[in-house]
Design a binder for these strands. Structure first.
Length: 292
DNA sequence: AAGGGGCTCAACCGCCACGCC
DNA sequence: AGGCGTGGCGGTTGAGCCCCT
């Protein structure tokens, strides 16, 4: 027995959305809010799968989407975030207001990959292509916090291993935001041991200062998409937990983020990538930072 | 003008995580 | 604890467009 289909495929439309379908979906979400995607198509009078409705809304119809070309700043930010996170498109999208994971994924595959290859950089490993293909002897790793306001601190410390390293300091700025990531990168020298073995008591900590979300929230309220301003945690997608300060809950959410709960609140010590879903600590799960 | 190849990006598919019962 | 339903994510596909010959 295979998996049961997510919806009754025999009675659903597929392929490109028509203008009328778009209008129906927008009207329904404006009236009733996002969420409960499975029942939405029927309620909205759409012959579409709930997933398809969700995708259409998130990737195309949301009012806070930024259409148009990526800027050079956004390019560089995507590259740096990708070097840090790998193909975690939703996390990357969470740091680019108005951009969707699908959009960034497409843009990466069509533009940035080629751009990096032209620069002689392997788009997967972010290392020079010759070096990358020759060996796996150096891994870019971020370490040691650079603490100040408006800065993401990324710590990577080990008390028991002291590899010989070259260090680089790098900053990632966020377009239209005051925050930036500062990090040091080091290259290890010919150490073939797996990362867990090299850093047995690995301590990963990600924090970020309060991003400026007022403009986005204001826009949604102005559009009539949000009935009340959401608390910061809700605006980051952390809608369903103790973090919520405005009482909003899943299915009570109207409009909002791409659904990828990213971001942080430095005052509470949330992980800036929204990776610690259950445990609201600032420590990241190791799986979330797995290196590809 | 035609057609073939490459590119773009919206949409789909399958899997996984999480919450609820 | 485990099954089920649902939402979310990343990889892939394919229609439409563009450019070159």
């Amino acid at each position: 027995m295979g998996r049961s289909p997510c919806c009754e495929k025999a009675h659903t439309n597929k392929g490109a959305w028509t203008k009328e379908e778009d209008e129906r979906l927008i009207a329904y979400i404006k009236a009733h809010g996002e969420g409960c995607w499975r029942s939405l198509p029927k309620a909205a009078g759409l012959l579409r799968c709930g997933k398809s409705c969700r995708l259409r809304w998130i990737n195309y119809l949301r009012p806070d989407l930024k259409r148009g070309n990526f800027t050079e700043e956004e390019d560089e930010l995507i590259i740096k975030l990708h070097s840090l996170l790998g193909n975690k498109w939703s996390l990357i999208a969470g740091r680019l207001p108005g951009r969707t994971d699908n959009e960034i994924k497409n843009y990466w595959n069509t533009h940035i990959r080629r751009k990096l290859i032209n620069r002689g950089i392997d788009p997967t490993t972010h290392r020079p292509i010759q070096e990358s293909s020759a060996s796996q002897d150096s891994k870019p790793i971020q370490l040691e916090p650079i603490t100040s306001n408006n800065t993401i601190n990324i710590s990577f410390t080990s008390s028991s291993s002291t590899p010989k390293v070259e260090t680089f300091q790098e900053s990632i700025s966020f377009p239209g935001k005051s925050e930036k990531i500062s990090m040091l990168t080091f290259k290890e020298e010919k150490d073939e041991r797996p990362i867990e073995e090299k850093f047995p008591d690995l301590n990963l900590e990600l924090r970020i200062s309060l991003p400026d979300v007022a403009d986005r929230r204001q826009g949604l309220v102005g559009e009539g998409i949000l009935t009340t301003p959401r608390c910061f945690n809700c605006s980051l997608g952390m809608i369903n937990g103790m973090e919520c300060r405005c009482g909003r809950r899943r299915c009570d959410v109207v409009g909002g983020s791409s659904g990828s709960g990213n971001g942080s609140d430095i005052s509470n010590g949330f992980d800036f990538l929204g990776l610690a879903k259950k445990e609201t600590t600032s420590l990241l799960g190791f799986r979330s930072l797995e290196m590809k």
